[in-house]
Design a protein around this nucleic acid. Structure first.
Lengths: 147, 147
DNA sequence: TAATTCACGACAAGTTGAGTCAAGATTCTA
DNA sequence: TAGAATCTTGACTCAACTTGTCGTGAATTA
């Protein structure tokens, strides 16, 4: 598995925040309930996303979390790399092409191709795109999101 | 990282065997030396590849390992899945598209696309292709492979 | 029989994943 | 100012996986 639940849960949280832009801070418990994420685990993911500037938090009654950028200016790629670290599929993709280490690996060229496409797709998809896709299927899943 | 050293080392070993087809069994120690794999770890990988029918082994002096199939009939995909298990990039790719679990994830559709292309590329590349690519760069790396 | 080579399973150290929990900081409201 | 609501942070846990090492035993050949 390339992604752990970190990348999954973290993106769920951002989608939830994007869907509630303009309604004031969204509470951790709300996000956790709607997106089915363990609340105390979500804490860590929100902290990471805050450190990297994707959201801001306010404490106290009425506090919560809000997006710090427009949802169409946050790509899936940057969020996943923030939460998971580099997404290289195999170590040797990092090696200089033409280096001995890259050659030893033997499959470097195959994966470089796949990796390039992956970066294109993820870099070309924003949180806003994910929200839009969700909205288009809203009727069918309204019950799931318990909105 | 999607692949661990298992997938890397295992493919290296098969490339090495494919390069020495027709020369009789190749010894574990030879493979390990040429491809820079810890010998006792290589054991486990060869065992897995043997179980799945990609090579056969003979014991005793002059023994070693040989491919059990033609190298152009072994795809990178099947070998990697033998060594690493499923290559799905994110859990929800396994969920029924349209299911609640798939929808909750929010990025299912993006990854399904990427995964499909990955399977195409890996399924369309054989050990023979990897050997051919290596041969085309042989001059530059002859020293590395110590052949 | 001795030497060579693979076969298989036990063991182990380190890392990561997936959380839980508690103490503390901040802010709002009464 | 007290108390309640929220987030913040770090410590801690437990299980699984990675990346090996080792030792014993089996098969084969000379």
């Amino acid at each position: 598995m390339l992604l752990s639940t970190k990348g999954d849960y973290g993106v769920r949280a951002l989608i939830d925040l994007a869907k509630h832009v303009g309604e004031g801070p969204v509470q951790r418990a709300e996000i956790a309930r709607r997106r089915q994420i363990p609340e105390s685990y979500l804490d860590h993911l929100l902290a990471q996303l805050r450190r990297d500037g994707y959201l801001r938090s306010t404490r106290g009654p009425g506090g919560g979390h809000e997006l710090a950028k427009a949802s169409d200016e946050i790509t899936l790629l940057e969020v996943l790399e923030s939460l998971e670290g580099s997404l290289v599929p195999i170590e040797c993709v990092n090696e200089e092409p033409g280096s001995a280490a890259g050659a030893l690996c033997g499959q470097q060229w195959v994966w470089q191709d796949i990796y390039t496409l992956m970066l294109e797709r993820l870099g070309g998809t924003t949180i806003a795109d994910l929200v839009e896709h969700e909205n288009q299927h809203e009727q069918r899943f309204a019950a799931t999101y318990k909105i």
